[in-house]
Design a protein around this nucleic acid. Sequence first.
DNA 1: CGCGAGCTTGATGCCGATCAATGCATGTGG
DNA 2: CCACATGCATTGATCGGCATCAAGCTCGCG
Lengths: 247, 247
Amino acid sequence: MSALPAVMPIKASSLKVACSSCNLRELCLPVGFSDQELERLDTMVATRRSVHRGDTLFRIGDPFEAVYAVRTGFFKTRVSSEDGRDQVTGFQMAGELLGLDGISTDRHSCDAVALEDSQVCVIPYGQLEHLSREFTDLQRQFHKIMSREIVRDHGVMLLLGSMRAEERLAAFLLNLTQRLQARGFSPCSLVLRMTREEIGTYLGLKLETVSRCFSKFQEDGVLQVKQRQIRIMDQDALHKLVNGATG
Amino acid sequence: MSALPAVMPIKASSLKVACSSCNLRELCLPVGFSDQELERLDTMVATRRSVHRGDTLFRIGDPFEAVYAVRTGFFKTRVSSEDGRDQVTGFQMAGELLGLDGISTDRHSCDAVALEDSQVCVIPYGQLEHLSREFTDLQRQFHKIMSREIVRDHGVMLLLGSMRAEERLAAFLLNLTQRLQARGFSPCSLVLRMTREEIGTYLGLKLETVSRCFSKFQEDGVLQVKQRQIRIMDQDALHKLVNGATG
DNA sequence: CGCGAGCTTGATGCCGATCAATGCATGTGG
DNA sequence: CCACATGCATTGATCGGCATCAAGCTCGCG
């Protein structure tokens, strides 16, 4: 009875796909690199890895060996306290880097979980270090990416520390659509890759609260919500919520 | 008189004080460097800067030129939303780096405010980039410091997203004493450099709540609190709160 | 001495957590 | 194809923790 799946996923490791021919190169590590520089990157990013939905790319405590660029798919990262509460620290989509947390102690300090079947490019850290020593643009770009992560985290702290439920969800949706738009998707229509609970664990809310906020937004004509299908009807209203114009 | 440090600080601008002779070198950027390497660092860290209590080292929007190592004193960093709410993103003490946020956009994205008269070593970013290209240990150490900041931020997200008021304050105090202990101070006695409001703005709480938690801890015999003088009577209790052992 | 910034403490109210039931889509086996 | 299980989402009722509002207190300082 057990037949092969109808659609056979292409084996990752067998296919050589280079940064120089990757359609994400303007979003990913090699932003603004010349053809010549791209070729040098290709020597570094040799392998790729597939991660199935629900599987982890790395886990807390795993030895740190590489950072990963999302090629296709969608991830979440999460940390947890000793008593089991956990916090989603981010959602990563195509072109974004995963694993920077591992540099500090040579072990990963968070889990990276695929929210759908995904592929990542493996960037061995030793080689990244080496190449960025003789390759100024790479060094600069890598530093910018780490710094951007720090700035992003500060934004999340502001959200968690000072915003109310609706404001948090509005900020979350605007951030998502903005990143999706940079990847060529519609600015007003999106499909959530994560559950209400995962959104809640990111925003410091319970899943019921997230659900209620979605319903509220729908009542108010700000969103259309059908399960994970979201359509933004009034982007202005979301912006006003985030920036606190007492609305 | 505000409390004088046990060791009298030497006047900054006039005196050439090098990493190689700095008593913070085991906590700061040059962790584990050889004498030879320290000398090369000294060429980079040429100037220092004094910042008076209440003044800013840099502000949101300032052009990014350097990162700063705290030599003496105490800082807070804060971000703010457009409608004026702000969030303290961290407190920095001797040996810790400030300004990493600026790398991503060449402008600072947070304010750094001195909570007491302070001195910082100025590390021009261009020189840091340059030197870390030919100096592997420096490169590695700098990356570790950025990564550590990311990991720290994730910890704060966990705190803000999933802990209750008392747990947050307990985590905050344990973190402070741990860092103070690494600098040779007592693990159970400390003087807060910040107001209740600043603590609250860091922990996502109102100042009244912070105050009530301090009082509660005192009632329970966990702390002795005299204004900003804190004595930890029961460190275990604090740990249990943070790790959620339902106690 | 009196002022003001920072801190404490009390009374009240609200937002979001919690508890609980139902709805809805997908999948599985009979 | 239906019966049922499962995972996720919605919605309602109630509860509790923290914010808010308001007074009074402490301490350092001009």
